[in-house]
Amino acid sequence: MKAVVFASLIGSAAAFAPAPTARTSTSLAVEKSKALPFLPNPVNCEGYVGNVGFDPLGVSNYFPVDYLREAELKHGRMCQLAWLGYVAVDLGMRVPGYPEAMSSATSATVHGPAVEYGALGNIFIWIAIAEMTSWIGVSQMLQGSGRAPGDFGLGTKFIEGKSAAEVESMKLKEITHCRLAMLAFSGVVTQSVLYDKGFPYF
């Protein structure tokens, strides 16, 4: 009986034994990322416009890349608008009809007055409606409808009559601007708070 128990323990331990060296040498031959040459290339990102192999956390191994690209485009588009809105307010642009506390505030200091006035509650409702509406398209995309990430049927006139290479170039420009806008908005908010000055925040 002791021999049977001992044999089963040895068998269980063998399951956790190191892999043979042959497998290790195979892993060394894996293609490396262009952006991070010390990491493997994220193969799930292949074929997407703007892919440079940047996925250090391996997120594309756990989530559909269509969903990740949808999120990247959404946040990038929002940051393009957000940067413009943030700077426009600090350059003096105001929506008429708001109380003095909001009209005299800067982008960095308007949160408190906006909460008191109730403006942020309205913004929350409109964002919730937009999110629920957009999820219909995202859900269909994830179920194989063929919808491209970020495609809501807007701006199609800009790619009408263009070749596949030209459409690819337009998509690359958009994703590049989206990525830049995410960095730009983070930078403009940080700099405006650190220096406590108006545009250009230094």
Rank of each mutant, 00 (worst) to 15 (best):
I129H: 01
K197G: 01
A164H: 00
G187N: 10
V87P: 05
G118H: 02
S104W: 01
P20F: 02
W83E: 15
F185V: 13
G53H: 03
H111W: 15
F63K: 08
T26M: 07
T133F: 07
E131G: 06
V193D: 04
E100I: 01
A22W: 04
A71P: 07
S103P: 00
T26P: 00
R94T: 05
M102V: 02
V167R: 14
G187E: 11
S8F: 08
A181L: 04
A22V: 11
R179A: 13
G146S: 10
A15Q: 14
Q80T: 07
V65D: 05
G50A: 08
Q140A: 08
G121C: 08
A101P: 02
S60I: 03
A184P: 00
C45Q: 13
K2R: 12
P18K: 15
A105R: 04
S33K: 02
P113A: 06
S192E: 05
T190I: 08
G47V: 14
G47F: 14
E72A: 13
C45F: 11
H111D: 12
G198N: 03
V65N: 03
I127P: 00
S27A: 10
S33H: 08
C45G: 01
V65C: 08
F158G: 09
L39Q: 05
K2I: 07
K32Y: 03
I136Y: 12
E166K: 06
S60L: 03
P64H: 04
F152A: 11
Y201G: 07
E31R: 13
A105L: 04
T176I: 11
G53C: 09
V95M: 12
